[in-house]
Design a protein around this nucleic acid. Structure first.
Length: 323
DNA sequence: ATCCCGCGTG
DNA sequence: CACGCGGGAT
């Protein structure tokens, strides 16, 4: 109904955009996937709620962490902060501390979640908006998360496009490795008004069947009869940019700073330095200068405060988690 | 080593 | 548009 009904790819090939088409019997394609998903799928607790806050928490956690590890963190988080009102009232340091305690990584996202809860309270009167465009106004909520929340909470989303959906559509229907093409194809595939089950189903397909090393027959992939990769045996997938190594990285030391301040409340800078790396030496290669660089970045991110000490007349600076 | 349901900022 | 952002599991 929106654009390019059924016949896929932007016809004009002027800017190098490649041609692609979806099968004629889209309805069969759709029914096959939904039947496969409803027949059997992994049971995650967030698939049994339609509370937008609970969904949002699960989505933010899932962006960075394997789903199996998210389950216990999600349950503990919602037990501690069951509503946006309660999360908004929490100290940021406690939310970031929770994130670290549960090894959820990327502490910025704890801050985003905390801020999003405050936005819901102050800007939306405690009620989540239901449209993807409005949801995207929330801190830390981009196009993917907005459609996920709109879909799973309100059955009111567009097709989600994540790395799973890209891989599945690239292989099955030979959609070119191009974001606009993926988005268009994903939306053409999705049956109108069924974003909740559809987005769950296509991501489940990417998660258990159309994996890096595919398991088409083992899990009975419902799209084998339409799948270009299954026919050709070429299961190449779009490149996902590989991360620089973590060991010894700046990221690793940021994580140690947060974890250490979580444990000690407030620490003088050199003490903190020694805690986070054994080769810390105030005047050395990794010393005061290196540490303050790290800390000012964390301060700019809103995660850490650098202050004069509360007591005493000393001028040694201390660091602590921002409340 | 590589993977894992993106996002905000410069 | 490129870049930085954690860390457990395998």
């Amino acid at each position: 109904m929106s654009e390019s009904d059924g016949d896929g790819g932007a016809g004009a090939d002027t800017d190098g955009g490649e041609e692609w088409t979806l099968p004629d019997d889209l309805e069969s394609v759709q029914e096959a996937l939904i039947a496969w998903y409803e027949g059997d799928h992994r049971e995650f607790p967030w698939r049994r709620t339609d509370d937008p806050y609970e969904i949002l928490v699960s989505e933010v956690m899932s962006q960075q962490t394997q789903l199996d590890r998210v389950v216990s963190a999600w349950e503990a988080f919602l037990e501690r902060w069951p509503t946006t009102a309660e999360l908004a009232d929490a100290d940021r340091a406690d939310v970031v501390g929770f994130w670290t305690d549960h090894s959820l990584g990327y502490n910025n996202r704890a801050k985003y979640l905390h801020e999003a809860a405050a936005q819901v309270e102050t800007e939306y009167d405690g009620e989540f908006p239901t449209e993807p465009d409005e949801l995207q106004e929330l801190m830390g909520v981009g196009p993917y998360t907005a459609n996920a929340v709109a879909s799973f909470a309100f059955n009111n989303g567009d097709a989600v496009v994540d790395t799973n959906v890209k891989r599945v559509t690239y292989r099955t229907f030979s959609i070119p490795d191009d974001d606009a093409a993926f988005e268009s194809a994903a939306n053409d595939l999705m049956p109108d008004g069924e974003s909740r089950v559809w987005n769950n189903a296509i991501m489940e397909l990417g998660g258990v069947a159309c994996t890096q090393t595919p398991r088409c027959d083992e899990v009975g992939c419902p799209w084998r009869e339409w799948c270009g990769a299954y026919a050709s045996g070429d299961f190449t997938a779009p490149d996902v940019p590989t991360q620089p190594s973590f060991e010894g990285s700046r990221r690793q030391f940021r994580g140690r700073v947060i974890g250490t301040l979580r444990e000690y409340d407030e620490l003088e800078l050199d003490t903190l330095g020694h805690r986070i790396r054994v080769d810390y030496a105030p005047g050395g290669e990794y010393g005061r200068e290196w540490l303050t660089g790290l800390l000012t970045d964390l301060e700019d991110d809103g995660l850490v405060d650098i202050d004069d000490p509360e007591s005493g007349a000393e001028d040694e600076l201390v660091a602590r988690l921002r409340r």
